[in-house]
């Protein structure tokens, strides 16, 4: 597949994101945020980092980078987009995903391993994964508290758009397993058409041989198998 990773000023996971796809044999490149050609991708990745220094609100300024017009148009045409951490924040600011990411409840910058539970296999990103599967995916953020009003939250959950929740090692969804105070332990959601995934944990940091967890591969390979199945 062709993967285009957007580099905003302040992105710092763009190269890692590009490389994990390249290591899996995909044609993967970075695109500077001032460019307006997405180079015909099958997948656009909005990577982690601190675009525009997190000024105003995380993702608020990046959302108006020149390339975002193309990303939004790509989304409207049914394109696949993966937003990781700051990328998730940009997607909510661009209203491609509902809700907002706010300061962690404990105000800490949290950088650690985190268990997340797969909430549905009904997404390109969890295709073939069992519901309830537990993955060890690192988190690294200060503004990751997912917030959504009650009515929209009900709609999101009724539509099966919650893809991952923060869990403990046994898969229990508890307040103790919730690192940042996200509503209902939500760690990742998809769009109504299920093609856009936003998640705070970093699968690209668990998808190289050099690191402890390789569970990030599960998400990347789920997407590969989804595309290969001709969906």
């Amino acid at each position: 597949m062709r993967v285009s990773v957007i580099t905003f000023p302040g992105s710092n996971c763009d190269i890692d994101s590009r490389d994990v796809f390249a290591d899996l044999g995909h044609d993967s490149r970075t695109i500077w945020h001032k460019d307006t050609d997405l180079q015909n991708p099958d997948l656009v990745v909005l990577p982690g980092g601190f675009s525009y220094g997190d000024y105003l609100r995380s993702g608020a300024l990046a959302r108006f980078s020149p390339v975002m017009k193309e990303v939004i148009s790509f989304a409207k045409q049914g394109g696949y987009i993966l937003g990781i951490c700051n990328g998730f924040q940009v997607l909510t600011e661009a209203q491609l995903l509902p809700g907002s990411l706010l300061a962690n409840e404990n105000l800490d910058f949290i950088c650690r391993h985190q268990y997340i539970r797969v909430e549905t296999g009904n997404s390109p990103w969890t295709h073939g994964l069992d519901k309830g599967r537990i993955l060890d995916i690192p988190i690294a953020h200060k503004k990751g508290r997912y917030h959504l009003d009650q009515e929209s939250l009900k709609r999101l959950e009724d539509n099966d758009q919650v893809i991952f929740r923060y869990a403990d090692e046994e898969g229990r969804i508890t307040p103790e397993a919730n690192p940042n105070g996200s509503v209902n332990n939500i760690a990742g959601i998809c769009s109504e058409n299920r093609r856009i995934l936003g998640m705070m944990p970093h699968p690209e940091r668990a998808a190289t041989k050099a690191v402890v967890s390789s569970d990030g591969y599960e998400i990347l390979k789920a997407f590969e198998s989804y595309l290969a199945s001709g969906n």
Binding site: S100, H147, D149
Partner: peptide, 8 residues
Amino acid sequence: TLLANPNT
């Protein structure tokens, strides 16, 4: 457009 996020 920019300064306030209507969600929050």
